[in-house]
Every structure is written in structure tokens, then in C-alpha cells.
Design a binder for these strands. Structure first.
Lengths: 223, 223
DNA sequence: GTCAAGCGGATTGTCAGACAATCTTGAAAT
DNA sequence: ATTTCAAGATTGTCTGACAATCCGCTTGAC
């Protein structure tokens, strides 16, 4: 009997790889908000055909990472502060709930994982690598969302966070934001570790509110 | 000066129409859960080309209305009760929040609209037209979500409700469900009309919980 | 000089056809 | 009954094409 029974890696299609590449490109801010994406350019850059690219673009459109206007084609939407506020509000709703549930149900093993990710963020926070800060912080939330016992909550949250990725790099590099973020996240961790639902909810709410405020500051200070 | 200035209807593309048609077909239960969708068949039935169809399918995949497995193609996902529960829980979170906000901020004009939609549901509830019941009830929620002041909340909610459309027809035709639904909705309406946030939240939560219970009953009674 | 009309290039929307890779099904063999 | 294998069906992807639409620029009228 083969060793890798049932572990078959589902073959990665061109479209999936393309979606991942483009998503990453968008996250890393490679495209300016408002700028148009030219299909033929992307095709040659990615080395794929137009139908494949267009399928990938439709996926990204449904995720709201790009906009496609008929006869104008795809572009990076400019995120207004109004919409960003709306996203932060829903994110608060979801993340607070997830933290509360997590406090009640996380396993010891996963809790250690959460602790490790907090340490990773601590390390990143003391450096000046804002990319590392963003990714380690994202890992921390991911673990909480993955252990709240509701996969839909997790999925919706991931979609929302993706849409405000634009801000996260900027606000993390604000003066002292990484350090205060660390304090807030540690509070969340402590509450979850203690199995204190109410405290976890409170700390989580506080964290999202401060993240929102930081995002606003970073937006105002930018042009 | 032309009369219709600025009212330009953005041209509907084949892909948009296809997405709408397929979405409607899925809502109306035309496809059995678990059944596969054959691209070539759909192309001839819809009278479109395969690239256009595949773009539409990618959009629906991102909405989680269909699944696309590499080398197996698109199919209607079988909604497990586990996932359905998760959806109802998040829906509760969102809908309660929306009802509460709506109570605080809805305009008099929109309130009358809400009242009219309640009347429409009342009429449908006394009939046996379960399709009319579902659509009028959906209108009622839509108005609440559209007036909660958070477009993202509305958007996410719509996506979730779409995924459980499968249940809504079934549970509405349960014995007495339409009537008790009417009572619950009337309570929500009264609370919003009175501007009572707390009551609106409570009534809304009650309503979602009962809808979930009804869905579970309808699922158990089915095979 | 300013503004409108119109022209041309660029880009998208959509289609047709093709072919290899993969899955599924059913028959054959043990 | 179970396994093996081959034929058919289906998907993943590409190439090439063409009409419709949009955008910028020139041109011409006032």
C-alpha cells in the first residue's frame, strides 16, 4: 500500500496560482488604488492566456479585491474611509465573538500555538520589519478565528481583513503602534488562556477599536 | 439636454446575465445538492460560449453557491447541518446588530417602506404560496439591512442568506412557521418603529433562533 | 482661444475551435 | 467478487479572431 494514501495534493491549476499571485501582488501594494489592470499586460507578465486570467479576475472581483466595470475592465478599487469604517465595524463584531468563543473552547495544544505566534509578533514588533509585523499579527488572529468553532465566521473575517490589508502595513509602521498592538494582543491572549470569555471579548474589542483609530491616523497623515 | 442624463444603464454583459440566471436557478432548487454541472450542457442551454460560462462559474464559486474541484468541475455543494448552523450563528450576529442600528437611524420614509413589506408578508403568510412568503420575508430583512448604515454588513449578510436559501423554502412551508414568523417580524417592526434599540435586538435574535430551529426541523423531517 | 465633433488606437467582451490531462464508467480477466 | 484496463466523457488551457466600446487627440467651427 502506498505511503501517501489519501494525501493526494489536489493539482494546482493555473487559475488558482494566478489568483494567489495577484492577491499577493495586491496585498503588497504593487498596484496603486484606482489604477487599471490591463489584461494583455498581465497575461504576458504571468505567462498565461487571457481566458485563464479572466477567470482569475472574476474570482478576485467576487472577493472585492478588484473591481470590474463593463467595457473598462479591472481596476484596484480606491478604499474610501467610509467603507473602511464599515469593514472595521463588522470586523469588530466578528472578532469579538471569535475571541469570546475561543476562550471557552480552545485546546491546550492550540493555545500553545497561539502563544508561539504571540512571541513571533513580539520579536517582529521590536524590529522595524513592518512586513513581518503584519504577517505575524495576522497569524495570531488566524489562530483565534480558526479555533472559535465556526468556520463561516473565520471565512467571512478573512475576506474582510483582506480588503483592509492596504491599511495594515501603513498603520503598523506608525509610531509606537506595534508596541501598543503587542500589549493589546497580550491581553487577548491572557484572557483566552484564562478561559475568561468576557475579558477576551473586551480585550478584543479594544484591540479592533485601536486598530481602526490607527488606520484613521495613518490615512489622515497620508496625502 | 437629454432627459436621461447620467442615468446610463451600465450595459449588462453576458457574464452578468449568466451569473444571475444561474443564481436564480440554484435558489429555485433546480439543481440537486451534490449534482454536477456539465459545462457543455450549460453552454448550449444558455446559448453562450464556454469561456463566458466559466467566468460566471468562477463568480458563483467565490460566492460559495457552487464548488469547483480541479478536474471534476462545478457542482452544487451539499450543505451540511454543521455549516448551516455556522451560517445561522453569523447571520444572528449580523442581523441583530443591523436591527439595533436600524432602530436608531431609520428615516420615516423607509419605515413606511418596512411597514409595507410587512403587510406584503402578512398577505403571503395567509396564502399557501411559499415562494411569495420567502421573497416578501427576504424583502423585509433587506430593508432592515439596507438601513443599518453599514453597507458591508448588508453585503455580508446577503451572501450568507444566499447560501441557506435552500432551507428557506422548506422551513417556510412547515406547519405554522409562516404565521409565527409573522409574529416575530411584527415584533421587530414595532421595536424599530419605536426606536427601541434593545427591543429590536432582542426580537431580531429571537427571530433568527426560531428560523434556525425551523430549518433544523425541516431538515430532520426530510430524508 | 475655446469648445464641440469626430477620428483612430487601445482595450475589453465574446466567440469558435482545438488538444492534452484527468476522471469516470463499464467490461474483461483473475 | 475484486482488480485491471481501455474507451468515452469532461475539464484545463491555449490560440486566434472580431465587434463593441472607451479614451485621447486632432481638427474644425465659432
Amino acid at each position: 500500500m502506498p505511503v501517501d494514501m489519501n494525501l493526494r495534493i489536489s493539482p494546482r491549476t493555473v487559475q488558482q496560482e494566478t489568483v494567489d499571485k495577484l492577491r499577493l501582488a495586491i496585498f503588497s501594494g504593487l498596484f496603486q488604488p484606482g489604477s487599471r489592470l490591463i489584461e494583455s499586460q498581465l497575461c504576458t507578465q504571468l505567462g498565461i492566456s487571457r481566458p485563464s486570467l479572466r477567470e482569475a479576475l472574476r474570482s478576485l472581483e467576487a472577493e472585492r479585491l478588484i473591481e470590474i466595470v463593463p467595457n473598462r475592465g479591472p481596476s484596484i478599487p480606491a478604499l474610501s474611509w467610509e467603507v473602511a469604517t464599515a469593514i472595521y465595524e463588522v470586523r469588530e463584531l466578528l472578532e469579538v465573538e471569535a475571541a469570546g468563543r475561543c476562550a471557552l473552547r480552545i485546546s491546550a495544544e492550540r493555545l500553545r500555538e497561539l502563544e508561539r505566534s504571540l512571541s513571533a509578533f513580539e520579536l517582529a514588533a521590536s524590529s522595524n520589519d513592518s512586513l513581518a509585523q503584519v504577517t505575524t499579527a495576522a497569524d495570531f488572529y488566524s489562530i483565534i478565528l480558526a479555533n472559535c468553532g465556526n468556520p463561516v465566521l473565520e471565512e467571512v473575517h478573512r475576506g474582510l481583513v483582506a480588503r483592509i490589508s492596504f491599511f495594515r502595513g501603513r498603520s503598523m509602521s506608525l509610531d509606537g503602534r506595534a508596541q501598543s498592538s503587542l500589549t493589546e494582543m497580550r491581553e487577548i491572549y491572557e484572557a483566552i488562556a484564562a478561559g475568561d470569555e468576557k475579558a477576551a471579548r473586551k480585550a478584543s474589542r479594544q484591540h479592533v477599536l485601536k486598530a481602526k483609530a490607527a488606520a484613521k491616523r495613518s490615512m489622515d497623515s497620508a496625502t
